[in-house]
Structure formats: structure tokens, C-alpha cells
């Protein structure tokens, strides 16, 4: 079943939270809503869940118009950032709650709860109360609880944000596995671009209540369409057309038509070729060693540049370097 969202708008007390959102989520798809805080991603998720009502716009799941369907009849599963387990129920009771509401038999409920807890590898903690579980374990139980009712769609609202780095990485893998195994479409809200890149089939990058770009992780990283996306997904050197025309005219071949100040060149740091040479026109200002790579801050032709290089061949501050950019390594984005 496909979730279709057309021209969805929502404002709170006069300020626009969502502006004409169009989005479709297909079967088995893992979609991330990515953006800085306040960009409207959580609002969109809550509207999809039915926890908020949109001001205008249309939402359909398959043939069903969702507008008139209350939250509890949508049959979605949801996992929040934290504190969403029922504190008065054990892990197993939490997982079985959705089935209890559906008036399933005790047997079926406990069987399903056990099965779901096994799926998230928590069978041994079935009888624990939420306060006896760690943050990561609580989120696993929450995930199991969301899955237990055979949801047509899973909604994840920053499920990993409250966790430590190591636990976060484990659970991220877990979510990925569950998605692959069960094939249920998932919509996840996150502000962590690495998380979005790793998990999604499709990333929806949002800013100020609007969708900036929708695409695969590769699309967003390699072919960002706006300055915001280029900046938000990883780091970039963003250069005005005017400067490119003077200093690197060979890059102009790929430039789409448009006014000078409406389009900028985006060059990723790792695409900048940096060669140490006495006659170089650039100078290294800073070197940051990051293990697998080194990050460089350069002055070159009157601009400051960010570069990344895997070679460790004696780069030092103050060293003259030659810098080059191939035409294929430049992407043009809307400013």
C-alpha cells in the first residue's frame, strides 16, 4: 500500500509549520524525514499518525482517505524518542497491549509478545518493568510493541536521539534488520544525517516547513539541488557563480541557466585535489587529523576552502599547495 500526501499545510498560531508538502511512501520503503529542529519533520510525522490534524491537504493510504480516520483506527505503529512505555506494565504487557485492545485471546497475546521480544532480542527481560530497563532496551521494547499489531506503517520519531553513541549504532542496525526482514514501510524522523544516509531508501530533506529535496541518499549527497541540502548533508565549499567565472571557468560547462546570484557551485571537500608544491597558489591554514582522513583548511585565490585527503604525505600548516577541481566534481545548487 502506498501512502500519498498531497499539498499538506499546517500552521500553529499564524506561523507556518508545514507548507504544501507532497510525498509518497511505497511498500517496503524506508523513508527518513531529515532536517534541523523546527523544520516541521515531527509535525509531519504526527499528522501522518493522526495525532495532529492538518489545516488542508490530502492524505491517502492505498484507497483509504486518512482524513476521517482517527489515530487509533489507522493501524500504525509508533516509537517515540523516549518515555513512551507504559510505566505500569511489564515489557511483555507493553508489547501485548495493542492486541489486548483488539480483544485477542490471552494465549495469542502472550505468544505474540514473546515472538516480538525475541525479534528485538529481549526475551530474557519480558517480565521487567520499564524502569528496570536501560534506555536502549526500552526503545527495543517500544519497537516490539509497535510491530506487534502488524502495522501497515511504522513511524519512528527520533527513536535513537536519546541514546549513547554505541547503543545508538546497535539499535540502528537492529531497525535496519527488522525493516529488511518484515518489509513494513517505515517513516523515521531524524536530525542526524548519518543516520538518514545509512538507513533510508529515500531521504526527505526539510527546512522551514518545506521539502527541500527528496531522493536516495546518493542523490542528496552527490546531487544536492539546493544550497541548504548541500550544506546539511555533509560539508561543502559553496562558491558564487561570479567567482567561478573568473577563477575556474572550466566548471561553467555544467551550469544550468539562471541569474548569477540564484545558482552556486557546490564542491565537496573530498573532491578538491590538493598537491603540495613549492609553486602552489594555495596555502594550508589548518590540518585536523581524523584517523582515516585528514581535514584541511586552505586559502586559495582569495577564498577559504575545506578539503579532505586520505594521504598523510607530510601536510603541514603554512605549506604551499596546488588546488584543482574537475568539472565533473562540481554540482550546481539553487542558492
Amino acid at each position: 500500500m502506498t501512502l500519498e500526501i498531497n499539498n499538506l499545510c499546517k500552521s500553529f498560531a499564524g506561523s507556518v509549520a508545514l507548507d504544501r508538502i507532497n510525498l509518497s511512501v511505497k511498500d517496503n520503503e524506508f523513508v527518513c524525514l531529515l532536517g534541523p529542529s523546527g523544520c516541521g519533520k515531527t509535525t509531519l510525522l504526527r499528522i501522518i499518525a493522526g495525532l495532529l490534524t492538518p489545516d488542508s491537504g490530502e492524505m491517502r493510504l492505498g484507497e483509504r482517505n486518512l482524513a476521517a480516520v482517527p489515530t487509533r483506527e489507522r493501524g500504525f505503529g509508533i516509537v517515540f524518542q523516549s518515555y513512551s512505555l507504559f510505566p505500569n506494565m511489564t515489557a511483555a504487557e507493553n508489547v501485548g497491549y495493542g492486541l489486548k485492545i483488539r480483544k485477542r485471546s490471552k494465549n495469542e497475546i502472550s505468544q505474540r509478545a514473546a515472538e516480538m521480544l525475541a525479534l528485538v532480542k529481549l526475551s530474557h527481560l519480558a517480565d521487567r518493568m520499564p524502569y528496570q530497563l536501560s534506555g536502549g532496551q526500552q526503545q527495543r521494547v517500544a519497537l516490539a510493541r509497535a510491530l506487534a499489531v502488524d502495522p501497515t506503517l511504522i513511524l519512528l520519531d527520533e527513536p535513537l536521539s536519546a541514546l549513547d553513541a554505541k547503543v545508538r549504532a546497535d539499535l540502528r542496525q537492529e531497525i535496519r534488520d527488522v525493516h529488511r526482514r518484515l518489509g513494513i514501510p517505515i517513516i523515521m524522523v531524524t536530525h542526524d544525517q548519518e543516520e538518514a544516509l545509512m538507513l533510508s531508501d529515500k531521504v526527505v530533506c526539510m527546512n522551514y516547513g518545506r521539502i527541500e529535496q527528496v531522493g536516495t541518499p546518493e542523490d542528496l549527497y552527490l546531487r544536492p539541488s539546493t544550497r541548504f541540502v548541500a550544506d546539511f548533508m555533509g560539508r561543502s565549499n559553496l562558491v558564487p557563480t561570479e567567482w567561478v567565472r573568473q577563477a575556474l571557468p572550466q566548471l561553467l560547462v555544467s551550469r544550468p541557466p539562471g541569474a548569477d546570484d540564484s545558482i552556486e557551485a557546490c564542491i565537496r571537500p573530498e573532491r578538491l585535489s590538493v598537491t603540495p608544491t613549492e609553486a602552489g597558489s594555495g596555502v594550508i591554514r589548518e590540518v585536523t587529523f581524523l584517523g582515516n582522513i585528514s581535514q584541511l583548511r586552505l586559502d586559495w585565490r582569495g577564498r577559504e576552502w575545506l578539503a579532505e585527503t586520505a594521504s598523510m604525505s607530510g601536510l603541514a600548516v603554512g605549506m604551499p599547495v596546488e588546488v584543482d577541481v574537475a568539472a565533473s566534481d562540481c554540482v550546481w545548487v539553487r542558492a
Partner: peptide, 27 residues
């Protein structure tokens, strides 16, 4: 009572009364 708890219960299919009796009152 975290708002997320009530939202989660609603998504699982609980009516307002259900959520009240099973979750809010015990807490």
C-alpha cells in the same frame, strides 16, 4: 504522564477511555 505514552496508546488502537483506564489512571 508523558504525552508520548498517550500518543503511543492511541496509535496502538486504544480509545480515549481505554488509554485512561489502562495507562493514565494507574500512573
Amino acid at each position: 504522564v508523558p504525552a508520548a505514552v498517550e500518543s503511543a496508546a492511541a496509535c496502538l488502537g486504544g480509545s480515549a477511555t481505554c488509554v485512561l483506564i489502562d495507562v493514565v489512571v494507574p500512573i
